[in-house]
Design a protein around this nucleic acid. Structure first.
Length: 287
DNA sequence: CTGCACGCCTGCCCGC
DNA sequence: TGCGGGCAGGCGTGCA
C-alpha cells in the first residue's frame, strides 16, 4: 500500500482509538511477517498503554507506557482495520460479536477504548518490532533515514547538497530513504512531472535552482495526498475502510499510453523501468 | 563509498 | 474456464 500519505492517513485513523488506550489482548497469529516478531511480543504488548502514536517516514510508532515503542511497517500490502464498539454494548460482549480473523489477519489488538485493531498483510512485506523508546535513533530500520519532507529540516540547500554528488537518476535518488523520508514510487513520479524533470536526469546534473525547486513540490504533493486520505490502488483502505481519493489526481502514475494532462501538450505518457521500478513520465513536459 | 539486481510473498489482470 | 506470465505502493542484502 503505503507511502508517507497513506501511512499518515492510517496513523490519523488509529489515533482516536489507540492513543491513550490500553491493550487488553494481543493475538499474534503467526510468528513473523518479513522478519520474526520480537520475542514474547504478545506478552509485551498485553496490558501496555499507548501514550502516543507517531509516524516516522513510512513507519508508525506507538510509544507504550512500558518504555518500549511498537514499530509498525505496512510493507506493500499492509492494512490496519478498526472495528469499533458503538452503543451500550459491554466491551467483552462487543469483542464476542466480531467475526473470527480473516485470511492474512496476522496481528489483532483489542483495546480498552472499545476497538479491535487488525493488521492484515497479504504479501507479508510488512514488519513489527519492539524497541527501547529511548534508543529509537539506533534502530537499524530508522537510523539512516533522512529528514521528514514536511519538516523544516528538509529545505532547498539540504536537498541540493544531497543530490549534487549522486550519479544515479533523480527518480532513484528521491526513492532513496536516506535522502528524504517517505517518498515511494507514486509520489516521486508525480513530483517529477510537476517539476518538469525527466526521471532519467542524473541527480547531480540538476541545477541548484531545479534541485531546490523540488522541495516545495514534494511538500505540495504529499500535503494534497494526505488531505485526500492517500491513494487507493488495489487495496489501500483508510482504517475506517473508506478509500482515499488522491489516485484521481494522478497526472502520470499508472497512465502509460494516456494523453498528457498538461494544457497544449499532445504527448503520451510513457513507462520505463529504472532500478526495477516503473517510472511514468511525459517525454515532452519532462526534460 | 555508490549503484543496481535480486528476493521476499500473495493476488490480480491479461492474453492465449 | 484454466494457465502462465507479468505486474504491484518497499526495502534489506549482496555484488561489482
Amino acid at each position: 500500500m503505503p507511502e508517507l500519505p497513506e501511512v499518515e492517513t492510517v496513523r490519523r485513523g488509529l489515533m482516536p482509538v489507540l492513543e491513550g488506550a490500553r491493550i487488553l489482548k494481543a493475538d499474534i497469529r503467526r510468528p513473523d511477517l518479513r522478519w520474526p516478531f520480537p520475542e514474547n511480543m504478545g506478552a509485551r504488548l498485553t496490558g501496555a498503554r499507548v501514550n502516543r502514536l507517531r509516524r516516522r517516514s513510512k513507519y508508525i510508532l506507538a510509544d507504550l507506557d512500558t518504555g518500549e515503542t511498537l514499530l509498525i511497517h505496512l510493507g506493500m500490502s499492509g492494512r490496519m482495520l478498526i472495528d469499533q464498539k458503538s452503543g451500550p454494548t459491554g466491551i467483552d460482549a462487543f469483542f464476542h460479536t466480531l467475526p473470527t480473523p480473516a485470511k492474512h489477519d496476522h496481528v489483532v489488538l483489542d483495546v480498552d477504548s472499545g476497538a479491535r485493531i487488525t493488521f492484515n498483510d497479504a504479501r507479508r512485506f510488512g514488519a513489527m518490532d519492539l524497541l527501547d523508546t529511548q534508543q529509537e535513533g539506533t534502530h537499524p530500520l530508522l537510523a539512516k533515514i533522512g529528514p521528514e519532507p514536511l519538516s523544516n529540516a528538509f529545505d532547498g540547500p539540504y536537498l541540493h547538497a544531497s543530490l549534487k554528488t549522486r550519479k544515479t537518476p533523480i527518480k532513484s535518488a528521491l526513492l532513496d530513504q536516506r535522502i528524504v523520508a517517505g517518498l515511494g514510487n507514486i509520489y516521486v513520479c508525480e513530483t517529477l512531472f510537476r517539476a518538469g524533470i525527466s526521471p532519467k536526469t542524473q541527480a547531480g546534473q540538476l541545477t541548484k535552482h531545479a534541485a531546490e525547486g523540488l522541495v516545495p513540490i514534494i511538500r505540495d504533493v504529499l500535503t494534497e495526498a494526505i488531505a485526500a486520505g492517500g491513494s487507493s490502488l488495489k487495496d489501500h483502505r483508510q482504517t475506517n475502510g473508506e478509500l482515499g481519493y488522491f489516485q484521481h489526481s494522478f497526472q502520470v502514475y499508472g497512465r502509460e499510453g494516456a494523453p498528457c494532462t498538461s494544457p497544449g501538450c499532445d504527448a503520451t505518457i510513457l513507462r520505463i523501468s529504472q532500478s526495477g521500478r516503473s517510472s511514468f513520465y511525459c517525454p515532452s513536459c519532462q526534460r
